[in-house]
């Protein structure tokens, strides 16, 4: 269903601009035009449709839902909601504190916050169109697993010991009153979702589409641009020869490089496509890209407001181990498919 974009790029790059099919520049430019056009079209249509459906979902409702839930299902639901609930990464601290003061365990809150940047509608769409559905399913499963297991781990070491004191107190207060809080939430009359009209949903979806598109279009261009450069100019086989399967250290090195770097999923997925196309092993690619998306220096600095250094260091080490494992496992098993 995506051939139109190939034709469009053929026409623009080869016919109109007069590039030759055989040159590297023509090849790179064709790749860039085709992917950008395809991604932009998909984004506009799909963000609107998805926003229409989830118009009534927001962090406040997720909190009320998660508060007082049994821990067993809590992690899975935390990660699941993280994947589908839209929120700006600049809200992570208020969300963290909001969840915490509702008495939700740190592990469940972190399952939500870790999964949220990794999986969202834009990421899933890009993966589907660039790397196919099998890869997309794999990506979602890993993203959820990192959230769930990370959350379980943090609670098992009682990570709440290393919160900043005001956050720890808020958690304690929240847990004492969480029973009454959920009871209160249940008795609240009719939730907004039932009362939202089609027009309201349309307005929300339109605003959401423009907002998200306005935010991500430059990332798409940067990501696809980098991808196109890799595609056209890095010699075939270079990546495979230097960073291929043989080097076990390439995975932890990629993750160590990726964690402090910041990108969002939108920018990084086109780069993933190129890296895999150029022969970088799937596990190494996944490990690098997921670690750039899941964590970054600016985010750690924000988290410092609510966590002590010790917990931040643990979080960093945990992510390093998690993504390294993901990388190794996939480098080992993926070629067997």
């Amino acid at each position: 269903m995506f051939e139109q974009f190939t034709h469009l790029a053929d026409w623009l790059v080869y016919d109109l601009a007069g590039f030759s099919v055989t040159t590297k520049a023509g090849d790179a430019l064709h790749f860039f035009v085709e992917d950008t056009a395809k991604i932009f079209a998909l984004l506009l249509v799909m963000i609107y449709l998805i926003a229409l459906v989830r118009a009534s979902l927001n962090v406040e409702r997720v909190r009320d839902y998660l508060a007082g839930k049994h821990r067993g299902v809590g992690y899975l639901m935390g990660a699941g909601f993280g994947a589908v609930t839209p929120f700006c990464s600049c809200s992570s601290i208020p969300v963290f504190l909001g969840f915490t003061s509702a008495g939700i365990p740190v592990g469940i809150t972190m399952a939500f916050l870790l999964t949220s940047p990794l999986i969202n509608e834009v990421a899933v769409l890009l993966l589907m169109s660039l790397l196919g559905w099998q890869f997309t399913v794999l990506y979602i499963v890993i993203g959820m697993a990192v959230g769930v297991l990370g959350g379980l781990f943090l609670d098992s070491i009682r990570a709440e010991r290393w919160l900043q004191s005001f956050a720890a107190e808020a958690l304690k207060r929240g847990q004492q009153s969480s029973v009454s809080l959920t009871a209160e939430a249940d008795t609240q009359p009719g939730t907004e979702s039932n009362q939202m009209t089609l027009v309201e949903r349309h307005n929300f979806a339109k605003a959401e589409m423009l907002e998200i598109f306005g935010r991500v279009w430059k990332w798409v261009i940067i990501g696809v641009g980098l991808g196109a450069a890799l595609h056209g100019f890095v010699p075939d086989g270079w990546i495979e020869a230097h960073l291929g399967d043989g080097q076990w250290w390439s995975v932890p090195a990629a993750v160590g490089l990726g964690i402090p770097l910041y990108s969002n999923a939108t920018g990084v997925i086109p780069v993933m496509e190129s890296l895999i196309g150029n022969g970088l092993p799937v596990g190494t690619t996944l490990a690098f890209c997921m670690s750039t998306v899941a964590a970054s220096f600016p985010e750690f600095i924000l988290l410092k407001q609510v966590m002590q250094w010790r917990l931040l260091a643990i979080l960093f080490a945990m992510l390093l181990c998690a993504f390294t494992l993901v990388g190794w496992i996939f480098n080992y098993f993926y070629p067997m498919f």
């Binding site: 962090v59 600049c90 809200s91 601290i93 208020p94 504190l97 909001g98 969840f99 003061s101 808020a170």
Partner: peptide, 12 residues
């Protein structure tokens, strides 16, 4: 962050 929390705000 602490002040924002006292208003019960989660989305900024």
């Amino acid at each position: 962050a602490q002040t924002i929390m006292t208003y019960g705000v989660m989305s900024t």
